[in-house]
C-alpha cells in the first residue's frame, strides 16, 4: 500500500514537471503545445550527451535546461508568435507537425534503439516503512519539489512573475498596462522548457533509458492532465498530475487488466469533462 502510494507520487511528480510547463504555455498563448513533449525528449538526449562527456548529473541537468530553453525560445519566436492571428487549429497542427519532425530527428540522430542512461547515486535503495525507495525516486521527489517551489516563487514574488500573472489573466489589458508581453512570453517558454528538460533527464535515469519515442505517450497524456487541471491553472495541474499518477498506479496494481494504464488518464478526462466542461479545477467560463 505504502509502496503503491509512493510509486504513484513518483509517477505523478514526473507528470507534474511536464504538465506545468504545458499549462503555462496554454495560460499565456492559448496554444496546445504538443511539441512540449519533443522538448522533454530533447532534454533527455542533451542530458545523456552531457552526462556522458562530463560525468556530472548537475552539469547534465544544466545543459539540458539550457539547450531546451533555446529550443523552446526558437519554437515560440519563429513558430507560434507569427501564428497567433490565425485560426486556433493552425498552431495546434503546427505543433503536432513539429513534434513528429522532432521525434524523427531524434531517431535519425540518436538511433532508433534504447540508450541506457545509468546514473549511480550515493545509495541504491532504502527501506521506508514497508516500502522500498530507490535513490532515483528520492532524487525525483526532491527535484520536483525544488522545481515547483522555484516556479511558484518566481511567479508569485518577482516582478516578471507578476507580469506573467497579468498576462495570463488578459493579454490585451496587460499590454495596455505597459507589460512587456514579448519578455513575458520568452520567460514563460524558458521556464516551461527548462522544467520539461529536467523532467526528461529524470524520466530517463528513472527508467535507465532514452529513446526517440519516449515522448509519444506522454505527449497526449499530459493534455488530459492539463485539461483536468483546468487549462492554465498551475496548482490545478499539479494536483491533477498527482491524481492521475496515483490512480494509474493503484488501478494497475489492484484491478489488473481492466484497463491499460495509459488509457486511464483519458477515460477520467472524458468523464470529468462531460460533467464539468471547464475541467476539474477550472473556473466556469
Amino acid at each position: 500500500m505504502v509502496q503503491q502510494f509512493l510509486n504513484g507520487i513518483i509517477t505523478g511528480s514526473l507528470y507534474a514537471l511536464i504538465a506545468v510547463g504545458l499549462t503555462m504555455v496554454y495560460g499565456i498563448l492559448r496554444i496546445l503545445h504538443i511539441a512540449h513533449a519533443a522538448v522533454f525528449v530533447g532534454g533527455a538526449y542533451i542530458g545523456l550527451v552531457a552526462y556522458t562527456f562530463t560525468g556530472s548529473l548537475v552539469l547534465a541537468l544544466i545543459a539540458a535546461a539550457a539547450g531546451c530553453s533555446v529550443l523552446g525560445y526558437l519554437i515560440q519566436r519563429y513558430l507560434y508568435t507569427p501564428m497567433l492571428t490565425e485560426e486556433r487549429i493552425v498552431p495546434l497542427i503546427a505543433s503536432v507537425g513539429l513534434f513528429i519532425l522532432c521525434e524523427d530527428l531524434f531517431r535519425l540522430l540518436g538511433g532508433p534503439y534504447i540508450r541506457a542512461f545509468k546514473v549511480d547515486l550515493w545509495f541504491e535503495k532504502i527501506a521506508f516503512l514497508e516500502a522500498v525507495v530507490t535513490a532515483h525516486q528520492v532524487l525525483i521527489l526532491i527535484t520536483t519539489a525544488v522545481c515547483l517551489l522555484v516556479v511558484y516563487a518566481v511567479i508569485s514574488k518577482t516582478k516578471l512573475g507578476l507580469a506573467w500573472q497579468a498576462t495570463a489573466q488578459d493579454m490585451d489589458t496587460a499590454r495596455a498596462m505597459g507589460v512587456n508581453i514579448r519578455q513575458v512570453v520568452t520567460f514563460n517558454f524558458i521556464i516551461a522548457s527548462s522544467i520539461a528538460a529536467i523532467a526528461g533527464v529524470m524520466t530517463a535515469i528513472n527508467y535507465n533509458s532514452v529513446l526517440p519515442t519516449m515522448g509519444s505517450v506522454i505527449s497526449y497524456k499530459m493534455f488530459a492532465i492539463v485539461v483536468l487541471g483546468g487549462m492554465g491553472s498551475i496548482p490545478g495541474t499539479v494536483v491533477a498530475s498527482l491524481i492521475i499518477g496515483m490512480s494509474e498506479t493503484f488501478m494497475s496494481a489492484y484491478f489488473g487488466f481492466i484497463m491499460p494504464r495509459d488509457a486511464i488518464a483519458f477515460t477520467a478526462m472524458i468523464l470529468i469533462l462531460i460533467v464539468r466542461p471547464q475541467g476539474l479545477f477550472g473556473r466556469a467560463r
Binding site: 486556433r88 497526449y220 488509457a263 483519458f266 477515460t267 478526462m269 472524458i270 466542461p277
Partner: peptide
C-alpha cells in the same frame, strides 16, 4: 455540445486513444 474548442480537440484525442 458540452465540450468546446481546445477542450474538444483534446477530448477527441482521448476518444481515439480509448
Amino acid at each position: 455540445l458540452r465540450i468546446k474548442g481546445d477542450f474538444l480537440a483534446v477530448t477527441t484525442i482521448g476518444i481515439n486513444f480509448v
